[in-house]
Amino acid sequence: MVMRSQKCQNFVSEPMGNKPITAVDGIDEELGAKLAAKGFDKAYILLGQFLLLKKECAAFQNWLKSSFDASSSEAEQSALCLLEWCYAFL
């Protein structure tokens, strides 16, 4: 279990609005650029993908790792972050 970071806290504490993809916990500039190149330039688009994968963290992590070469910790963090956001707002 990854500790909830400050970034995650910040992300979960607010509606995501038009936040960029890098606002999601676990997604740094590098990974964010990769995602943005594929069209995932906003946090809500990533959320969309997460929801399409039925909020399954494992599936989402796999997807991140396979398509964007994300590290497993990055994938885990972002999945957790989105999941928490969903708990709070959905």
Partner: peptide, 22 residues
């Protein structure tokens, strides 16, 4: 391929989101 498609879309002056199955 998705990448080619994205190029086409951008060329046509449209916004391009992620290209997934759906």
């Amino acid at each position: 391929t998705p990448d080619e498609l994205r190029e086409e879309i951008i060329k046509a002056g449209q916004k391009c989101g992620p290209i997934t199955l759906t």
